[in-house]
């Protein structure tokens, strides 16, 4: 099932720092859940369309109007770090 390396990859994809010592137990736990989930393999789903929306509605469209924006102060209000009206993050390198 899931080995340490797989869990390490998933943790990176999900951007969660998992300590080296925790990888193994987490791999076992996730493997347990995945193993349990695999019972779905018993269900014959040939020709079944996957369910993508719960309601029998059609997607509604909105008119192309300006109804939002113009509140930069509120947008950055909760930011842990900000500068010159922008969000600040550790320097990114190309």
């Amino acid at each position: 099932m899931l080995d340490k390396q797989t869990v390490r990859n998933i943790a990176f994809l999900a951007r969660i720092d998992v300590k080296e010592d925790d990888l193994e137990p987490l791999a076992n736990q996730l493997s347990g859940i995945i193993g349990w989930v695999e019972q779905l393999g018993e269900v014959n789903t040939d020709g079944v369309a996957p369910m993508t929306s719960v309601t029998n509605q059609v997607l509604r469209w909105r008119a192309d109007e300006l109804t939002d924006g113009g509140r930069a102060d509120q947008v950055v209000l909760n930011a842990p770090d900000k500068l010159d009206g922008c969000f600040a993050v550790p320097k990114m390198v190309e």
Binding site: D64, E65, L66, T67, D68, G70, A72, V75, V76, G85
Partner: peptide, 24 residues
């Protein structure tokens, strides 16, 4: 378009930082 794909904020180029931003 006047507004964004999924929000009603303005699309005009060159405005003050974060002034054309909805919470979406």
């Amino acid at each position: 378009s006047n507004s964004k794909l999924f929000s009603g904020a303005d699309t005009t180029f060159g405005a003050e930082p974060n002034s054309q931003v909805s919470f979406v």
